[in-house]
Simulated scan of single mutants.
Amino acid sequence: MAFLSSFDISASGMSAQRLRMDIASENIANMDTTRTEGGGAYKRKLVSFQSYETRSFQDVLKSARDGRGIASRKAGVRVSAITEDDREMQKVYNPEHPDADEDGYVTLSNVDVLKETVDSMAAYRSYEANVTALNAMKLMAQKALEIGR
Rank of each mutant, 00 (worst) to 15 (best):
G13V: 11
A64K: 15
I82H: 13
E26D: 14
T83A: 09
V79P: 15
A2L: 13
G67D: 14
A123I: 09
D103A: 09
A136W: 12
A11E: 03
R78T: 14
S12F: 12
M21T: 04
E102A: 15
A144L: 07
V111I: 09
K91S: 01
S126G: 11
N94G: 02
V92I: 09
L4K: 13
L108F: 06
H97I: 00
A16E: 11
D99H: 03
H97L: 01
A75R: 04
Q50C: 00
A81H: 14
D59T: 12
A41I: 00
D99G: 01
A41E: 05
E102Q: 14
S25E: 10
A129H: 10
N27W: 08
S15I: 12
F57N: 08
D85P: 06
L108M: 04
F57T: 11
N94A: 03
T34W: 01
G67Q: 14
N135C: 01
T54M: 11
E116I: 06
G13Y: 07
M121H: 09
T33L: 05
G40L: 04
L134N: 01
R149Q: 12
R44C: 00
K138L: 04
S109P: 08
D112K: 08
V79F: 15
D101C: 03
K62P: 02
D119P: 12
S80R: 11
A41M: 00
S80D: 02
